[in-house]
């Protein structure tokens, strides 16, 4: 079965007919020729396919294209505007926060989404006041202040890097987060 969908990807509108089994990731990569998001597992287990879907980070391999008609999608290719790299992209290069680069677009998009989540006050498992931290998670609630390195590590753990550039990814993100 096929269906027609429309997306805006990195600022450009596309209309296409997709097999209803087609994931958003395959629609981007195989149909629209945008290979910025990568396929590492196809099961929501590695984060290589992370894109911003209507402003939030998602694993695009877990999204069916047909379910997101009208969506606004941003990949790492779209974060760089007019040839200017996004500050996180420059920080990743300076800190050598990657080797093979296959997880990298996903890491960077994920970091953009993550910083927005933190800014909006979303707690993580290591945020002070969380049950995991010995807090009650109750009325005074968790507080997200300045992101500690442990916060960044926790919040970025959905993005696996087999080259294990983690010890460079954290300072690259912190450089941008702390301005």
């Amino acid at each position: 079965m096929e269906a027609e969908v429309t997306f805006r990807v990195d600022g450009t509108s596309h209309r296409l007919t997709v097999d209803v089994r087609t994931t958003l990731l395959d629609a981007l990569r195989e149909r629209l020729g945008n290979t910025s998001a990568k396929k590492g597992c196809d099961h929501g287990q590695c984060g290589a396919c992370t894109v911003l879907l209507d402003g939030q980070r998602v694993n695009s391999c877990l999204a069916l294209a047909v379910a997101h008609d009208g969506a606004e999608i941003v990949t790492a290719a779209g974060l760089a505007s007019d040839g200017e790299l996004h500050p996180l992209q420059s920080a990743f290069i300076r800190h050598d926060a990657f080797q093979c680069g296959y997880c990298t677009p996903g890491q960077i998009v994920s970091a953009v989404g993550m910083l927005r989540e933190a800014e909006a006050g979303w707690p993580s498992a290591v945020t002070a006041g969380q049950p995991a931290d010995g807090g009650s998670g109750g009325s005074d609630g968790p507080t997200v202040g300045i992101l500690t390195d442990d916060e960044v590590r926790e919040r970025m753990s959905g993005n696996l890097c087999r080259c294990a550039a983690y010890a460079n990814i954290v300072p690259a993100i912190q450089e941008v987060a702390r301005g």
Binding site: R29, G33, T35, S36, A37, K38, K39, T75, A76, A77, L79, A80, L85, Q89, F92, I93, R94, D96, F98, G101, Y102, T104, P105, I108
Partner: peptide, 21 residues
Amino acid sequence: LDRLDGADKVRGLARYAFEHP
């Protein structure tokens, strides 16, 4: 030196095998 292919990799523009058009 920074990686020569860094700017391509951080944007996802470096082409891996399956991505060759």
